[in-house]
């Protein structure tokens, strides 16, 4: 079965990103397909490569990046939510005249239409939030 995943909260403050990650891992282990993971609201903060959690804690951002590399996951960060919260890829940084970008590997920035499309294309859409 094809799953779409929506993550509405950032890392660490709420458990939402952790639960979504464990769900995605379990779905992949069972042979299901993850059509897309869409990050919205503060969920866009899961995509910053500048997080440095303590060494004895999980690295939520890196964990998503690694899972994406391993399974060719499509991790999409909402552009409108990302711009509000200071998440940029190289081209967005350039377009907005910012001196840095901060998107972690495996994530891409795109529009809200990607969420709707995931709802249309996936057999199930599962929402994780606060």
């Amino acid at each position: 079965m094809k799953f779409g995943i929506l993550v509405n909260e950032g890392p660490y403050t709420h458990q939402a990103s952790d639960t979504a990650y464990q769900f995605v891992k379990a779905a992949l282990a069972k042979g299901h397909e993850i059509y897309r993971v869409f990050f919205y609201h503060d969920g866009v903060n899961n995509a910053t490569r500048l997080t440095v959690p303590p060494q004895d804690d999980r690295n939520i951002v890196k964990r998503w990046s690694e899972l994406a590399a391993q399974h060719k996951l499509d991790l999409v960060v909402c552009i409108a939510a990302a711009q509000r919260r200071g998440l940029m890829d190289k081209s967005e940084a350039k377009r907005n005249g910012k001196d840095a970008d901060n998107i972690a590997p495996g994530f891409r920035i795109s529009g809200l239409g990607q969420l709707i499309e995931a709802g249309i294309q996936a057999d199930r859409l599962v929402v994780f939030g606060a």
Partner: peptide
Amino acid sequence: TIYALESLEVVLIGAAFEQ
């Protein structure tokens, strides 16, 4: 909180998909 506003933004974008 921002949820209501950002939810409405999804509705507006989603409308183009004719669901």
